[in-house]
Design a protein around this nucleic acid. Structure first.
Lengths: 200, 200
DNA sequence: TTATATTTGTTAACACTGTTAACTAAAATA
DNA sequence: TATTTTAGTTAACAGTGTTAACAAATATAA
C-alpha cells in the first residue's frame, strides 16, 4: 500500500512547488505583483490546480505570514540565549527584530505592512504567539529584577513591540533602501530609553 | 469673458465631485474596494472622464493622502496651542495623533498603512512636512529646557513619531475596532517614558 | 483482464480591475 | 455659417481571482 503514501508525498511536493514559485515571484517583483496565473505559469500547470492545494490566494499569503513569524521567533530566541541578563536580552532582541525586518523585508511587509488582508486572521496565527512569548518572557524577567516588580508586563510588552514596529515601518516608508548607521542609533536610543524606564 | 472662468469653475467642481464620490466609496467599503468604475458610476459619467482630471488612480489616493496630512498637522497645531510647557505640548500632541488615527482611520491607513503604493512619493508630500514641523519644533523646545540641550532633536523626533505610529498600527492590526482605555494607558506609558528620557 | 469509479488536470468562462485608442456630439472661435 | 476645439462616449486591451464543465489518466472492483 505504498501508493497512498506516494500520493501524499507528491501532493506535499506539489504544494511546496507552488510556494516556491510564489516566493521567487515575490523576491523578484514584490507582493503586489504576485498572481495565481504567474504561479501556474512557473510550475507549468493550469490555474485551477492551485486551488486544489490552497483555498485561495490569501491562503498562500497566510502560509508565508506564518513562516515569517516562525523565522522571527526563532531568531529572537536564538539571540536571547546568547545573553544572561534580561535587560541585555531585551536589547539584543530589539536589534534582532530590526535586522530581521530589513534582511527579510518581504516577510516583514507581509506580516505587518499589508495588514489589511490578513487583518481578520492575524489573531489566529499561532506562530505570532511564538514571537510574542519570547518578548513577553524577557520583559517579565526584566521586571522581576527591577525595583518595581509589579509593573504590568503585558502593557510593557505592547509598548516594546510598538516601538520596534514603529521604528521599522517609519524607516521602511521613508528610506526605501537599507537603513543607515544613523537609523540604528535611533533604534538604540529608543530601546535603551524603554529599558531604562523598566528599571526605573 | 466669463466663459473661461465658468469652465474653470466647472472643472473644479467636477474634480471635487470625483473626490467626493471616491470618499463615499472609501467610507462605506474601504480603500481596497475603491475603483475608478465605481466612481464613474456614482457621478454618472463614463470612466475616461476621470482621467481628464486625474492622471491615474494613484493621483486620487495621493490627493487624500495630502488632505490627511494637512488635517493631522492642523489638529496637532491646535492642541499644541492649548498648552504652554513644551513637555505638556508633546504629551497633548501624542494624544491628538492617537485620536486622529482612530477618528479618521481611513485617512491614516492611506497615509501610512498601505505604504507601498505611495512609497516613492511619500517624501515629496509637502503636507507631511507640516506635520513633522509641529512635532520637531515642540521637541526642540522641550530639549532646550532640558538638562542637556545639545541632544539630537531630529533623532528624538524620529523616535517620537515611531513610537506613535507603532502604537497606532499595532493597535489597528490587533483590535480592528475602537481602542480601549487600556490601549490609551499604553500610549500614556510609552509617551511619558519618552518625555522623561528627554528631560533625563 | 475488463468495466466502473475516482482522481487529476484542462479549457473556457464570469466578474472584476486600471487604462487608453478611436470616435461622436456639443460648444466655442474665426 | 464654417471650422476648430473640447467633452464625453463606446469598446477594447491586458490584467486580476475564482469556478463550472468537461476530458484524460489512474486506481479499484468484478
Amino acid at each position: 500500500m505504498g501508493i497512498a503514501e506516494r500520493k501524499i508525498r507528491q501532493k506535499e511536493e506539489f504544494r511546496a512547488s507552488i510556494l516556491e514559485a510564489a516566493w521567487l515571484q515575490v523576491l523578484s517583483d514584490g507582493w503586489q505583483s504576485l498572481s495565481i496565473r504567474k504561479i501556474a505559469d512557473a510550475i507549468e500547470y493550469s490555474v485551477p490546480v492551485i486551488y486544489n492545494h490552497f483555498e485561495n490566494k490569501e491562503a498562500i499569503l497566510l502560509e508565508f505570514t506564518k513562516e515569517g513569524f516562525q523565522k522571527l521567533a526563532d531568531s529572537l530566541q536564538f539571540v536571547k540565549a546568547q545573553h544572561v541578563e534580561p535587560a541585555a536580552q531585551l536589547e539584543a532582541i530589539a536589534h534582532a527584530y530590526w535586522d530581521f525586518a530589513f534582511e527579510h523585508k518581504e516577510y516583514y511587509q507581509l506580516m505587518f505592512g499589508l495588514g489589511i488582508p490578513a487583518c481578520e486572521k492575524v489573531n489566529q496565527i499561532a506562530e505570532m504567539k511564538n514571537m510574542s512569548t519570547v518578548m513577553i518572557s524577557t520583559i517579565q524577567e526584566t521586571i522581576n529584577l527591577s525595583p518595581n516588580p509589579d509593573a504590568d508586563f503585558f502593557l510593557k510588552y505592547h509598548t516594546y513591540l510598538s516601538i520596534l514596529h514603529g521604528l521599522v515601518s517609519i524607516q521602511m516608508i521613508r528610506n526605501d533602501g537599507k537603513p543607515t548607521e544613523e537609523n540604528r542609533r535611533i533604534l538604540q536610543d529608543a530601546i535603551s530609553g524603554f529599558i531604562k524606564s523598566l528599571l526605573i
